[in-house]
Structure formats: structure tokens, C-alpha cells
Amino acid sequence: MLLAFLAVIALAIVRLRNLFGVVMLSGIYSLLMASIFVILDAVDVAFTEAAVGAGIATILMLGTLALTTSRERVPMHTPLLPLVVTFITGAMLIYGTWDMPAFGDAAAPPNRHVAPYYLERSLPETGVPNVVTAVLASYRGYDTLGELTVIFTAGIGVLLLLGRRRERGDGRATTRGSGA
């Protein structure tokens, strides 16, 4: 049911030309996704999605709209070729789902590989009851370090691209982009 809502909102995002409305709808889309994550037992992920998707991403997009324009022009060329491409790709992906395990199957390969080890051993080995935290920080520490580096790099990139090189020393010393 919620998935159907999600599909409807995504369709509305595609149809709408007012970018302000598009951004608002994408915020609602994120909030719906967060509730679906709760239903799918991923509370940590839902937490993140609600804070990030409905909060920060929406604000950043609104900030971009304030700096640019909020109307989308009607494209000049016909969308026939993209439609054909998406239909073919979608059909191939749906054909691929035939081999997927059924929803919620405890015996599916992804749920039998390392997950039982984590669920059994994480509490005695790390003393942390939240398995997601234990796996995130300990078992997959390298991965998380890499992800954090990506966030670091993206943040530095934004500062370099948009940071104002201000020579006036007015005490606030905003970002000084050195690369540009």
C-alpha cells in the first residue's frame, strides 16, 4: 500500500514542471520511504532517511532553487527514444526478478551468508546490542571509514565550488577556496 503511494508520488514528480513542487514531493517521498523502512525492520535506516531525505536534502534543493530558477521549461525534443530505452531496460530488470528470492524468505542466500554470524556473535564479541552499530563500526570498519572519506571529500568539494574567496577580513573568515 505504501509502495503504491511511493509510485504515485514518483509519477507526480516526473509530471510536475514546477520545481518547487518537485522538491516538496521528493521530501514527502523520503518520509514515505522512512515509514516503509520501519515496516521492513530497518529502524536505523528509517531514522537516517527521515533526517536526511525529508530534512537536509530538501533544504539544500530549496537553496539551489533560490539561487537558480524554479520553473522547468518544456523540452524541445520528443521523449520517445528515452521512453523506449527505459521500457526495454525495465522489462529486462523485471525478467531478472524471476530468479530473486521471495519477499521475507529466511532461507534466501543473502540471509544465510554472514548475517547469522553477526546476529549470534556481535553481542558477545563487541558488547553492543544494536547489531547494526556493531557491524557498521567494527566488522565493517574499513567500509565505514571509506564512506566517511567520501562524505569528507564531497563536503570539501562543495566548499571549493561555492565557497566565497573573501579578502575582506571581517572576522568571520568564511571558506577560502584555494583550488579554484
Binding site: 521492513l40 525492520d41 530497518a42 536505523d44 535506516v45 537516517t48 532517511e49 536526511v52 531525505g53 537536509i56 536534502a57 539544500l60 543473502p110 540471509n111 554472514v114 548475517a115 553477526y118 546476529l119 547489531v131 547494526v132 557491524v135 557498521l136 565493517r140 567500509d143 565505514t144 564512506e147 567520501v150 562524505i151 564531497a154 563536503g155 568539494g157 562543495v158 565550488l161
Partner: peptide
């Protein structure tokens, strides 16, 4: 319990996603 491993992967991916979106 549900499988925690996808949760970990997606948790980090969401935050990385918003950082790259900002870029």
C-alpha cells in the same frame, strides 16, 4: 531478527547520497 547487513550498507549510502547530492 531481520538481516542487519543491508541496513548497514544502506545507512551509510543514504548519508553519502546526500553529500554527493550537495556536490
Amino acid at each position: 531478527y531481520s538481516n542487519p547487513l543491508p541496513h548497514v550498507l544502506i545507512l551509510t549510502a543514504i548519508v553519502v547520497g546526500v553529500a554527493t547530492t550537495a556536490l
